[in-house]
Amino acid sequence: MLNMEKRWCPALTVLLSSIICITLSTVISSNGAVMASQQFTAMFAFGDSLTDPGNNNYLNSLAKANYVPYGIDFYQGPSGRFCNGRTIIDYLGDLLELPLLPAYANPFATGRNILKGVNYASAAAGILAETGQNLGQRFNLNDQILNFESTLNQLRNQMNQQELSQYLSQSLVVMTLGSNDYINNYLQPSFYSTSSTYKPNDYANLVINHYSRQILAIHNLGLRKFFLAGVGPLGCIPSQLATGLAPPGKCVSYVNDIVSMFNTRLRSLVDQLNAQYPGSIFVYGNTYGAFNDVLDNANAYGFRVKDRGCCGIGKNKGQITCLPFSVPCINRNQHVFWDAFHPTQAVNQILARKAYNGPPSDCYPVNVQKMAQM
């Protein structure tokens, strides 16, 4: 008689085990998105011209970059990014295996196109509502929060409440603001009187107090993972060097000193928020230190020019920014600065990597890669 005893085939056992493991380790939401392999479900970016992907294209603003030579190294050409190519957000998205985030104001930023995140950044925007008013319309941070609420309403139509809560809690928030509150506000007394009203310490406190409330407003909407970038060494950008207030080869120390006051308070705010909101994570991105590292070790990073723009007019190519159809430098990857205010995409890529997997001196208390695991 034939042996009817049940026997397992080793090859079949391996196959079934593999299928079970894949099934258990992969979670698919009702909208069809595979969740398990992702570091974050989405990324939501709030910011200014350092990360604006083209929102100001749709506003009545003097702060626009939707013309050549902007975007000369970007596959879409002049998209509205204030750079020769990609921004920090673009490169960080690459590291997180996320697609380019749509600009909130883009008509195509709707439906499934927003499931991986949205970029709300707007050139000339600040933490304070009045910052950048001299340049016309912009989405200040208060506006950007309202715009996120509009996105949230769209997401509610695509997920149930439980799915949405999980989606938001595993999303990344990146906030890069504060520069304009100095460049287009405190350092521009002809446009706004704050600089004659507040001492530097008082002004830093004012801005941080506003920022704290705005961060918590976003947190209250369900987001839980925040990367808060500090302000870079503004005293070293070509527009400040062009003022002649710094010795040759040096930065404007006064400007860097007052920016450092803001950064010190932002780092302290991160400690405070992490203590008050267990289950959430707030990270301070030391943009000031990371950018200074590039400037101090320019040759090691492959840069040959660090005191003037690749594109612009006047002293240090920092008195007038890139004019339409102007011809930029050829060796763009060897320039730290693209124009009077913004870094080249080569620097943006370095800063994104430092944010993603940098040491505590770059990202405190953890980097973005570790945030994804929390």
Rank of each mutant, 00 (worst) to 15 (best):
F262P: 08
S260E: 10
G279Y: 08
C251H: 05
N286R: 08
Y284M: 02
S239H: 00
N292W: 03
P238E: 13
A290I: 06
R308H: 15
T264Y: 09
A300F: 14
R267S: 11
A290M: 15
G289W: 10
Q240R: 13
M261K: 15
L266S: 08
G309M: 03
S239C: 06
A246Y: 01
L241Q: 01
G285H: 13
V231C: 09
L266T: 06
L228H: 05
F291Q: 04
Y288L: 06
G285D: 12
V252L: 11
N256D: 15
A290L: 06
A246C: 08
D271C: 02
N292Q: 09
P247V: 03
C310L: 04
Q240G: 01
N297Q: 15
V294K: 06
L245A: 12
M261G: 14
T287P: 03
F303P: 04
S280R: 11
T287K: 02
Y284A: 01
T264A: 07
V252D: 15
N292C: 02
D307W: 07
L273Y: 11
A229S: 15
Q272W: 09
F226V: 03
D257K: 08
G249S: 10
S239D: 00
S253N: 14
K250N: 12
Q240P: 03
N292K: 07
K225S: 07
I258C: 04
Q272I: 10
L266D: 08
N292P: 04
L269S: 10
F303I: 06
G285V: 11
N256Y: 08
T243E: 12
S253M: 12
V231A: 12
K306V: 09
S260C: 00
N274D: 14
F262S: 01
V259R: 00
M261P: 02
A298G: 09
D296E: 15
L266V: 11
G235W: 08
L266P: 02
N299E: 15
V252G: 06
G279W: 13
